[in-house]
């Protein structure tokens, strides 16, 4: 089984994502989806960095000829899922921010009115 710098980088990023999952729980952010993505992607990266030949098995399961194809398919799918999650999250945050803006302007005005009285 041959290891390279790529394995090392994958291992570091994987551990970083696992640590992020731990921090999400530790700080009680209650962001379950973020926790799930961090732990899932982190564990996956640690797994493939320690067992680089695992993708040959994945390629066989997916019916692909080469493990490179399997890596491409799995990474693309993971990327799509991540982008969809992030876009969803951005939209939700923007919505909340916009409503907060509305709320703040109304409250600020009420405060000014009471100060004037």
């Amino acid at each position: 089984m041959a290891y390279s710098v790529v394995n090392l980088v994958s291992l570091v990023i994987g551990l970083g994502l696992l640590a992020n999952g731990y921090l999400v729980v530790n700080r009680e952010h209650e962001e379950f989806l973020l926790f799930l993505v961090s732990v899932g992607a982190g564990a996956g990266l640690v797994f493939v960095s320690l067992l680089p030949n695992a993708f040959e098995t994945v390629a066989t399961v997916l019916g692909l000829e080469f493990k490179t194809h399997a890596i491409l398919v799995v990474s693309n799918l993971a990327l799509f899922a991540l982008v969809a999650y992030l876009l969803n999250r951005l939209a939700k945050l923007y919505y909340r921010l916009s409503r907060l803006n509305e709320e703040v302007s109304i409250l600020k005005h009420e405060l000014e009115e009471r100060s004037d009285e």
Binding site: S98, L100, N101, V104, S105, I106, H109
Partner: peptide, 14 residues
């Protein structure tokens, strides 16, 4: 006029 001030720019719809 009574003025309501947004904390940041959102656009005319907001």
């Amino acid at each position: 006029a009574t003025v309501l001030e947004h904390a940041f720019n959102t656009g005319v719809g907001g």
